[in-house]
């Protein structure tokens, strides 16, 4: 399946295939769903099992669980302020879900559920709805003042209000496309260079094997880079969510 008819097939890795047989097919339980469950299981295991010993001097697993907690907690409280504590579980769930989704994609034969725009847009839309509902609950109709900054000349209202509304509505789009595009691009690159390794390696004997080391070296570097991107994109998603929460709580 590396090369079908001399063309590089970099996209079929993103196809959804049902698992768990006929039942899985009936409820649309695909490998993507299985990886989501695996991610949730791993996060839950880390956070519950990691601190189950409640050690004063933490071991490795407990230190990992605690530093994840403190990392996201600092992020949320740093951005939103003390009122942000309420939203910390939400941002933490988002961060860990996306981080583990991205990292599971780096495991051989694993699937990257964050490479699906449906998933990333689902999460971004959830963030959008949650943020808007929080803003409406805190500020009521004053929330709509967000679209027209105080002190701006009234004459510019027909210009400013549409711009502000469009920028507000485009948040879930940019948030979801950023994560989706990063993960797709990374995995397409990996697949393309992996296909080069196979194509060149099987093409021309010893010379081919020597030539194949070059895309292999590129792939090794790419994997390191993708691990960075996996973390970075989860961080970006979490910090943008925190910034939107800040706007919802403080209105600018």
């Amino acid at each position: 399946m590396a090369a079908e008819g001399k063309s590089i097939d970099a996209l079929s890795q993103f196809e959804l295939t049902p698992v768990l047989g006929a039942v899985g097919n009936a409820v649309g339980f695909t490998q993507s769903t299985a990886h989501m469950l695996l991610a949730v299981g791993l996060v839950t295991a880390l956070m519950l099992w990691g601190v189950s010993r409640r050690a004063i001097v933490p071991g490795r697993l407990q230190a990992l669980a605690e530093s994840s907690y403190e990392f996201v907690h600092e992020l949320v409280v740093g951005q939103v302020g003390d009122q942000g504590r309420k939203y910390f579980p939400f941002v933490f769930s988002l961060f860990m879900f996306i981080l583990f989704g991205n990292l599971l994609g780096m495991v051989p034969y694993g699937f990257t559920f964050t490479s699906h725009i449906a998933v990333t847009f689902g999460l971004a839309a959830l963030v959008f709805v949650v943020v808007t509902v929080i803003a409406l609950m805190i500020h009521g109709t004053h929330f709509f003042g967000y679209f027209f900054p105080e002190g701006a000349p009234k004459v510019l209202a027909p210009l400013i209000i549409p711009i502000e509304v469009i920028s507000y509505l485009s948040r879930p789009v940019s948030l979801s496309v950023r994560l989706f595009a990063n993960m797709v691009a990374g995995h397409v690159m990996l697949k393309v260079f992996a296909t080069f390794v196979v194509m060149i390696g099987s093409a021309a004997g010893v010379l081919g094997i020597l030539g194949a080391t070059l895309p292999l070296a590129v792939n090794i570097a790419l994997i390191g880079f993708e691990l960075l991107v996996a973390f970075l994109q989860a961080y970006v998603f979490a910090i943008l969510t925190s910034i939107y929460l800040h706007d919802a709580v403080h209105l600018h």
Binding site: G28, S32, T33, M36, F113, H116, V119
Partner: peptide, 12 residues
């Protein structure tokens, strides 16, 4: 599957 994936996403 894509639609089911979104539903599963929100459940999970």
């Amino acid at each position: 599957y894509l639609i089911a994936n979104i539903v599963w996403l929100f459940i999970i």
